[in-house]
Design a protein around this nucleic acid. Structure first.
Lengths: 229, 229
DNA sequence: GTGGAGTTGTAAGGCGGATCACATGACAAG
DNA sequence: CTTGTCATGTGATCCGCCTTACAACTCCAC
């Protein structure tokens, strides 16, 4: 276990600037957490006093809207940082984080992480970079969501998921993440029915294919055209 | 001018951790820029090699969508940081920044700012905090935009603008930012016509009042109800 | 394996908001 | 003061998507 923990941090590019001493310090203060599929990592309103790094599995982060609908903010997978707002500002969680597969994470107390950032300024730069990238990505997504049709947004979604979950295959690119129509709807701000119809259309037009709740992108180019329509 | 520059950085809470030496260093490497109303600070595709801090005025940041519509990402005002992605990742701007009033900003080369962050780790923490807050705010906005009606989104917008531009008044809260209907539309992802109708309704119901392109919130409570409807 | 819950397919009806189309008003430049 | 440009008010039409409503299907738990 000790070896595995050490290996993890040393191979996560967020920590590329750490010294051996700092690695040891961090390893000693991190806790390995296992969360079973569909179990919550944290819930809205929980104390936000630590941040997480995904070791394996997938975490889904969602936000409940006033009218009870669920907006999925995103999926976090291996090596991604999660709940880092605990380090900077938040004292309560405003979103829900839920294990989407059986997941293991390393948890680090916010205060400890702050200490480490103060000790190693390069880490601060790396974290800022990560947060900034996340921000840019979301900003792009907002543009998508606001002005495009459901078909377009769905195409965007599949292409976007490709980045983290895409696996190339003889037929095209498999999005290696099981998603129900309802969940896709939560990602693109649409209803389940609309997604069902849109998927039917995309299949009919030969752009995608579905298999065991996974999407296979057959015609990446056409999908891109649709996404930017 | 020199005195004013010094005053600025020393009174911007982002820099509360700097030493006297560091202040001098930063002052020496920052450039005061004046941009007239409606002039651009930077455009999409420009080199992203420095970041800005608003000294006075207002900067509007927009993103052009594929179909040519304009989404306003936000307004940046005194003491806010702008274009900081230059420090972390971006090499080209993906958004447009445009002076909304006559504006003055301090520009700092991305490389210099990185140097300063490495010298002073508390600064890194402060910057991370700022970016993280920005991210959370946008995340909240996405939830709003996706699931609410145009009326609701407009109400949310006015309340949101209150935070940076609100001025209390005998009648209520004045949103001290001149906005055309078209611009409001760009902020909430709607068309100009829809905004016109919505404003008419809000006025009719006595929730707001308009005066010289400025909105005055008469019934904050009712507006909040509408925003969360 | 069976039951029950959750997922998917499909359809009718309605509404919010986009689009198109002007008229009027406000304002800035000449 | 005049002219042109941009903002605003208002209406008609149209379409995408939500809503509601089922039926069939899948999958997991017991």
């Amino acid at each position: 276990m000790r070896r595995s923990k050490s290996w993890y941090f040393r191979n996560n590019s967020l920590f590329s600037s750490l010294t051996d001493d700092e690695f040891e310090w961090l390893e000693a203060r991190s806790e390995l957490i296992s969360v079973r599929r569909k179990q919550t990592v944290w819930g809205e309103g929980d104390a936000a006093d630590r941040l997480f790094f995904v070791r394996s599995g997938v975490v889904k982060v969602t936000r409940l809207t006033d009218d009870g609908r669920e907006l999925t903010v995103g999926f976090f997978t291996k090596d991604e940082m999660l709940g880092e707002d605990a380090v900077f500002s938040a004292d309560r969680r405003e979103v829900n984080a839920l294990a989407y597969d059986d997941t293991t994470l390393f948890a680090v107390a916010a205060a400890d992480f702050r200490t480490l950032m103060l000790k190693n300024p390069k880490l601060g730069l790396e974290i800022s970079r990560a947060v900034s990238r996340r921000y840019q990505r979301l900003e792009r997504r907002v543009g998508d969501l606001l002005f495009k049709t459901a078909h377009s947004r769905l195409a965007s979604l599949f292409l976007d998921l490709t980045e983290n979950f895409g696996v190339r295959d003889s037929r095209g690119v498999i999005v290696n993440l099981k998603l129900t129509h309802r969940e896709m709807a939560g990602l693109i701000g649409a209803t389940r029915e609309t997604v069902s119809f849109a998927i039917l259309d995309l299949r009919k037009d030969g752009l995608i294919q579905t298999e065991a709740k996974r999407v296979i992108i057959l015609d990446e180019h056409a999908l891109e055209n649709l996404a930017h329509a």
